[in-house]
Amino acid sequence: MTDTCDILISGGGIAGMTAAAAFGTAGFKVICVDPTPPVTNGAAEGADLRSTAMLQPARALLERAGLWEDLAPHAAPLQIMRIIDAGGDEPEPRVTREFDASEISDQPFGWNFPNWLLRREMLDRMGALDTVDFRTGISTTRLFTRMGGAKVSLSDGSRIEAKLVIAADGRGSAMRAAAGISVRTHRYGQKALVFAATHLIPHENVSTEVHRTGGPFTLVPLPDHNGKPCSAVVWMDDGRLAQERMDMDVATFEAEASKRSCNHFGPLTLVSRRQAWPIISQHADRLSSERVALIAEAAHVMPPIGAQGLNMSLNDIATLLDLANARPDGLGDAEMLDTYHKARYRDITLRVHGIDLLNRASQAKSGIARDARAAGLSALYGSAGVRKMLMQMGLGMR
């Protein structure tokens, strides 16, 4: 059986579903496939317990995709980004700097959402669009392209003919490999522990990064949990240490996490399962080939610092959507895809390298390296012009 569509999206994660909703809302006929049905309940087995900070520019795309109105009631605003250096002999703050969104905008830096909730709302949106066909339990297996279109074989034996194939199938992308696009990968030996925790002191919409060694310990605001202040936590460290913490009993883990946070919001109480994710840096050598565009982790992967990952993915989608709307008759042709590569590649490369440098600095073990990191933070913050420029760059502003 062969079906036809304008766009086939390989991968139904958050980026793939956002792309499906955005292109479907714009009137393109979309088929999106993923081997795993999305888990849309945070308490269910297999739920993605990470959270995502949608930065300011992301809101425009979410509005275009018809998603923002339903997401807004669940948003936890991120008004202030606080960075703490705790690299001294004892795990306590020695340098604290705050970056306030009011310096550059009348809006917060962004809004934080649990990933499982994003999937729930995106699934509902796709279901409301007659232009989107979302198929789970199915993966893409083979790709054949020609100047006029692409044919993709699926794991259920069917085939899809499309003008454009969007590879949103993750860091091990099958469509990227089928298109013959290579990647460059760096492994840090780190893992990120992710979980949600309540605390006594309100976060007041402040996202806090605590740097000591091994990687940052980040607390990102979530809505209150059972009447108590709550944050999503990402704790990056050496992979062996992270695994040991995965195996700790809850009381011991809470004590260790509270200590690593410098008790900034008071004792942390675990309110979710713990999950561990390997940390790598990776980017594709090209973002397109004949009839294929790479987005999200098929195109770029980086450590979870500065909320860059998914927001870069949304920039990928917005760029493709603009190009498709500007020339609907040229959907997926060489001109469109060459323009996409040129529009996104430099920005992606710069951000991947920038986050790589920040992560290496956050891993600092020696006292000299920690002192240099603290001095660098103070120097960057000390210049109002530099501070504002860094905040604007972080948001992806031009």
Results as ranks from 00 to 15, higher is better:
236 M>A: 15
257 A>E: 02
115 N>Y: 10
348 I>P: 03
184 R>Y: 07
48 D>N: 04
53 A>C: 14
36 T>M: 14
165 V>K: 02
25 T>Q: 15
111 W>R: 00
289 S>D: 09
383 S>Q: 12
381 Y>M: 07
184 R>D: 15
168 A>C: 01
161 E>H: 08
320 L>H: 02
11 G>K: 12
102 S>D: 07
328 P>C: 05
307 A>P: 08
52 T>K: 02
298 A>R: 06
271 V>S: 01
364 A>D: 05
188 Y>G: 12
202 P>F: 01
154 L>E: 04
395 L>P: 11
64 R>M: 10
202 P>T: 05
71 L>A: 06
57 P>S: 07
58 A>L: 01
231 S>T: 14
383 S>C: 11
178 A>I: 00
280 I>C: 14
335 E>L: 11
74 H>V: 03
59 R>W: 08
362 S>T: 04
48 D>G: 03
363 Q>V: 01
152 V>R: 03
343 A>L: 10
154 L>R: 03
145 T>S: 07
145 T>I: 07
77 P>T: 06
151 K>Y: 04
204 E>P: 06
346 R>D: 14
259 K>V: 14
390 L>K: 04
78 L>Y: 00
121 E>H: 14
176 R>Y: 04
76 A>T: 02
67 L>M: 02
388 K>D: 15
191 K>F: 13
189 G>R: 00
97 R>T: 07
245 R>P: 08
259 K>S: 13
129 L>D: 02
179 A>R: 02
240 R>A: 15
57 P>Q: 09
49 L>G: 12
62 L>Q: 04
363 Q>L: 10
144 F>I: 13
329 D>P: 05
43 A>F: 13
